[in-house]
């Protein structure tokens, strides 16, 4: 099911971020949103995630299960990377838990989180490492819609490449909306472009 945004109006005080705005996000598609600061990129993601409400208009077709990388990492700082990712996965016990943890470790390794630090509290991680944990959390979540707000922020070029490869590999045909400032990164996702002004 496509996501249909119709005649959307979102105001912040007197300032209209969106006025009578319409957009279709294709099911299983990738939408890459670019635009200057304050253009409404994050606001659009928040509206899609149900964290903000429009002043007018409708948003239809949003699936119940959403995975999201927020503008900030929003990790549980005193817990390990594995625990942070496990938090959003279905609850299992016993042998199944061991299998899930192993899977999480493999995902974390894929984005360059070394095994010896995967059980350390994320409070001791660098900004780039935290970002990658937040990304793995979103990609591993049982979600039908992925909302990624600048997922590669704070990553060096080599890591960015590794992370983008991971995103495309783990998307698994799910609908994905990505916000980015980088044209190069936007091109890498290979989806539709939307420039917000």
């Amino acid at each position: 099911m496509n996501i249909e945004i119709s005649n959307l109006t979102k105001l912040y005080g007197d300032r209209g971020i969106f006025r009578d705005y319409s957009l279709t996000i294709k099911e299983h598609g990738i939408l890459v949103i670019m635009g200057s600061s304050g253009a409404g990129k994050t606001t659009l993601l928040r509206l899609l995630a149900g964290l903000d409400y429009q002043d007018a208009g409708t948003i239809k077709g949003i699936p119940e299960k959403i995975g999201m990388v927020f503008q900030e990492d929003r990790l549980c700082e005193e817990f390990s990377a594995v625990e942070n990712v496990r938090l959003v996965l279905p609850r299992v016990s016993g042998r199944e838990k061991g299998k899930i943890d192993q899977k999480i470790r493999e995902h974390l390794k894929k984005v360059g989180i070394p095994e010896d630090s995967q059980n350390q509290p994320v409070s001791g991680y660098s900004g780039g490492m935290k970002r990658r944990v937040a990304l793995v959390r979103a990609m591993m979540a049982d979600a039908e819609l992925l909302l990624l707000d600048e997922p590669c922020t704070g990553l060096d070029e080599d890591t960015k490449e590794q992370v983008m490869k991971y995103i495309l590999e783990q998307r698994r045909n799910r609908t994905m909306v990505v916000v980015t400032h980088s044209e190069e990164e936007a091109g890498g996702y290979g989806g539709e472009f939307l420039l917000l002004k």
Partner: peptide, 24 residues
């Protein structure tokens, strides 16, 4: 509130929410 939003988006509820998000 940002962690509360995160928990809402990922549908983290019950004991997990209490032990990993609220109690700390």
């Amino acid at each position: 509130p940002k962690l509360t939003e995160m928990a809402a988006v990922f549908r983290v509820r019950g004991l997990r929410r209490l032990t990993m998000i609220t109690l700390p």
